[in-house]
Structure formats: C-alpha cells, structure tokens
Simulated assay, not measured.
Amino acid sequence: MKKKKIGTTELEVAPLNFGGNVFGWTLDEKQSFDILDAFTAAGYNFIDTADTYSWWVNGKGGQSEEIIGNWLKARNNRHEIVLATKVGSETKEHGFDISKKHILKSVDESLQRLKTDHIDLYYTHFDDEKTPVEETLEAYDQIIKAGKVRYIAASNVAPQRLIASFEAAEQYGLPKYQALQPHYNLVERTKFETQYAALAEQYGLSVFTYWSLASGFLTGKYRSEDDFGKSPRGAGAQQYLNEKGRAVLAALDRVAAKHMSNPATVSLAWLLAQPLVTAPIVSATNKQQLAALFEAPLLTLDAEDLSLLDRASK
C-alpha cells in the first residue's frame, strides 16, 4: 500500500488513520483488539488517540490509550505502528491546558498507559489560548530531546496562534508542528477551507481530518429523526439532517450507485481527492464497517463525481 510522509518527517503512513475514540466507549478491549488486528492486517499502520478518550465515560479518560497499549504489548508490533496521541483537552478535573507543567506530566502518563517509550506524533489537542506559544513549544522541545516524543502536531488551535507558533519556532529554534488535525468533511467545509487550508499549504502540514464521516451522518445511516437512536453516536449526526445534509446524501447516493459503492466509501474518497488531505481519521465498530472504509483509497472519483459532491456540499 502506498504510504505518504508526515510533513518533513520520515514517518510514513497509509491513507487511513484509525481514530481510537471508540476504544473503551463503544468497543470493549476484546472488540478493540479485533478491530485493530483487522485494520493492521489490511496494511494500515496509523493509530490516533488522546489522553482524554473516553472522558465521557468516566470523567477523565485514559481508557483508549490503555487498550492500545495492551494491544501493542500483546502483539509486539510497536515498531510497525505510527502512534499519535494528544494533550490539552478539557476534562472534569481540569480545563484546556497546554502549559509546560501539564505537558510534562501528561506525556509520562500517556507513555505509561500506551506501554511504550515514545510517541510518534504528539498533538496539541486544544489550545488554552493563554499559555505563551513559546512555553508550549519549549515543553515539546524538552520531551523530544528526552526521546519521549518524535514530532508534534496541532488540532484545535486558532489560525493566529498557529502562525505565532511557527514564528516562535523559527525565532527560537523550537520544534515545528508537522501536521494539522481539523474538523473537515462534506458537510463541514467552510472553516478548514477559509481559515486553515492556506496555512497547511504554507507550512507544509499533513492534514488528518477528524469526524471525517460527520459522526456517521455521511454513511447514510441517519435519514430521519427515527434513525438517531441506532447508535450511541446518533445524536451527533442530528445537526446535519437539514436541506444541505439531505442534498449531500442524495449526491452521495448517486455517486455510490455509479461506482457500485456506498456513501461512507464515497465520502472518504472525496476527502482523499482533496490535495491537502493525507489520511482521514476513521472509526469502526465492526469488520463490515471497516471493509467500507478500506474501499475508499481504491475508489477514484472522476471530475463529474467531484463536481456533483462539491455543488451539493457548498
């Protein structure tokens, strides 16, 4: 399977990034192991999690990292995996926090849960918007030099703070973000395309989209109010059941029928057709869902398909 490099690093990843937010939430440990086994058996090597997943279950998180750590240890395959986790998210115990103190504490806790001595890609999950960017980057510099982290990335960081981070990194010789994890999909385009796309291009950031299937809405599973009870994630898709959302689903149905595919596969194929997107973040709770995801890198949408989807989703 063709892999792409992350930013200016030597890390190479396959075109789908598995999102570990389901581990310890909608999947127990055994089910998580089965999904991770199937994902990697298909040739994929990129796993994403966060120190706070799944905080909505126990109020503090850590379950996802623990499950991934147990899997890495059981399979003895850490050297085959590009592992990403995050710091700075809000929990019941603390607010958003990317201070040096919090980062230095959190990275050790993540390493312990993940049962590894290093994290390949460490994200600023959320910006607290008060810690000086230099302080955050100095913390990252310290843990990179200690061998605990290889490279850093950014998720929910405002454009002006992202720019300030690159300026500080250049001025003080500090680590630079190598990737961006934005909220981007066929029904959520405006923010990334107007505020972040130019920055990703300017700074050479690899883009890994989160909520790539809009909380499942773009699978076509939720088409009426009655459908939202189908899964624990159904409530998150409810916001998209409007005129635009229905137009996107209609376009997806049309393109899927043309290619004898399905809406989820087509949605991800559209993301992969965007020049800045390296690997959409995806999740699945069973092997049937995984199979639909695996078809996305194999599906090439033509100009007519892309035009139809673009018109419906603008």
Rank of each mutant, 00 (worst) to 15 (best):
N58S: 14
F166E: 01
S64M: 05
L11A: 05
G204L: 11
K287Y: 04
Q195I: 01
N58F: 07
Y196C: 00
A153P: 06
Y53F: 13
T190E: 15
T265L: 11
S283V: 09
L276Y: 05
T131D: 09
D128Y: 09
I81M: 14
L306V: 11
E134V: 15
A41N: 14
T190P: 05
D226M: 13
L301V: 10
N156G: 05
L104D: 01
W270C: 02
A139M: 06
S261V: 10
A284Q: 03
W270Q: 05
G19V: 08
G147W: 14
R311V: 12
H183L: 15
V82A: 06
T52H: 07
Q178V: 08
L299I: 10
L83W: 10
G229K: 13
L11D: 01
T219Y: 04
G59F: 12
Q178A: 10
F126V: 10
N17L: 08
E201C: 07
Q160Y: 15
T278L: 07
A146K: 13
A256R: 01
K244V: 09
L309F: 06
A257L: 11
Q181K: 12
S212H: 03
E134P: 04
R246S: 08
Y184S: 02
E90K: 15
F228D: 04
L104R: 03
V255M: 11
K105Q: 14
I67F: 05
Y122D: 01
Q142G: 05
T85G: 02
A179Y: 03
A292P: 00
E243Y: 13
A179I: 08
D28A: 07
V266D: 07
L298I: 06
T131M: 11
Y184V: 07
N70W: 12
T116G: 01
E138N: 14
L268A: 07
A269L: 15
S165H: 06
W71R: 04
L83N: 04
E12T: 13
L36E: 03
D97C: 10
N262T: 12
D305H: 04
V187H: 00
S283M: 04
K130A: 11
E225P: 02
F228V: 10
L72Y: 08
N156P: 12
H125R: 08
R254P: 00
L11V: 06
W25P: 04
A264Y: 02
I281Y: 02
A296I: 07
A257R: 13
T8E: 15
T116V: 04
L299W: 09
A273Y: 00
A179G: 09
L83R: 06
L218I: 12
T52K: 10
N45V: 05
Q239V: 09
L83A: 06
F96G: 08
F217P: 00
R113A: 00
I163T: 07
A84Q: 07
L241N: 05
P182M: 03
P132F: 13
L293H: 03
L36P: 02
L137M: 09
K191F: 08
L83F: 10
T194A: 04
H94P: 06
G43T: 12
D128K: 08
R161F: 06
K244T: 13
F208K: 01
W56F: 15
Y203I: 05
N17M: 09
